[in-house]
């Protein structure tokens, strides 16, 4: 089953067109890196798929027309890890993660044994068990990001959309997060993550979608998307292309010479 299909999606923000008729589909078991320069429309794309922005075109989530779903039905299909790491109140980290179970609980019901197991597993996967009882607002930026990622995992959805999930993480936790997204894909779940680090995108994603000025300019396996020509025209950089341990390395070196 297709987890997400987007047809002719266009978005205007304040009369300024941001996305121009995008088409793509996400099947199960994919780890898709959404890449593109600043202002290309990556965040807008993620937010319009989640119905957080008014958009034209059709979005289908888990086989159903998104326009016909309510917020709760959408939440059962797709989880969202926002770019802003907002935690308004000084609540324990564990409570933040447990909020991920919200869409699965009716009314005022308490957490079930199964909910607790899922919350614990999510915390273990994001390596945040050690600060389970600490106040979330007092954690460092990277720790907070991991707690919020655990929250999104605890929602336990077939599809996860993450907006720059690696920003602010140390290299070990960046790689751990990429591995985790890869393992979700191995479980037939899918992840769409916007990324600025082309090295991580090249090495860990199964597929890349390159956005520029609100249009998809390349969509496919990393080797087909991250080409010297694309980096030069879209990102205006020259890059080093190599290989290590059987996976590609892409490292931007310098600004491309103006044409």
């Amino acid at each position: 089953m297709t987890l997400l299909s987007v047809e002719n999606l266009s978005v205007e923000l304040g009369h300024r067109p941001v996305l121009h008729g995008l088409d793509f589909a996400v099947g199960p078991g994919e780890f898709i890196g959404l890449i593109g320069p600043n202002g290309a429309g990556k965040s807008t794309l993620l937010r319009s798929v989640l119905n957080l922005l008014p958009a034209q075109g059709q979005v289908r989530l888990c086989g159903t027309d998104s326009a016909a779903m309510n917020a709760r039905q959408r939440a059962a299909c797709v989880a969202y890890l926002a770019q802003e790491r907002e935690i308004a109140w000084a609540v324990p980290a564990e409570m933040v993660v447990a909020l991920g179970r919200f869409p699965h609980r009716p009314g005022f019901a308490a957490l079930t044994e199964r909910d607790r197991a899922i919350v614990d597993a999510a915390m273990r996967r994001m390596d945040v068990e050690a600060f389970r009882h600490r106040i979330a607002t007092e954690l460092s930026g990277g720790e907070k990001a991991r707690v919020l990622a655990a929250r999104a995992l605890a929602q336990d959805t077939p599809l996860l959309l993450a907006d720059e999930p690696t920003a602010g993480l140390d290299p070990a936790h960046q790689i751990a997060l990429m591995r985790l997204f890869g393992s979700l894909a191995a479980d037939s779940r899918s992840v769409v993550a916007s990324l600025h680090d082309l090295g991580l995108a090249a090495r860990w994603c199964s597929r890349l979608i390159l956005l520029d000025k609100g249009r998809i300019v390349a969509d496919g396996p990393p080797s087909g998307v991250l080409t010297p020509a694309n980096l030069r025209t879209i990102y205006c950089v020259e890059a080093f292309f190599g290989e290590a341990n059987g996976a590609p390395i892409v490292h931007p070196l310098d600004l491309a010479a103006p044409e």
């Binding site: 989640l50 917020a71 709760r72 959408r74 939440a75 059962a76 926002a82 909020l99 991920g100 919200f102």
Partner: peptide, 8 residues
């Protein structure tokens, strides 16, 4: 936005 994505 996160709340909306959780079904609020």
């Amino acid at each position: 936005e996160t709340a909306a994505s959780m079904g609020i």
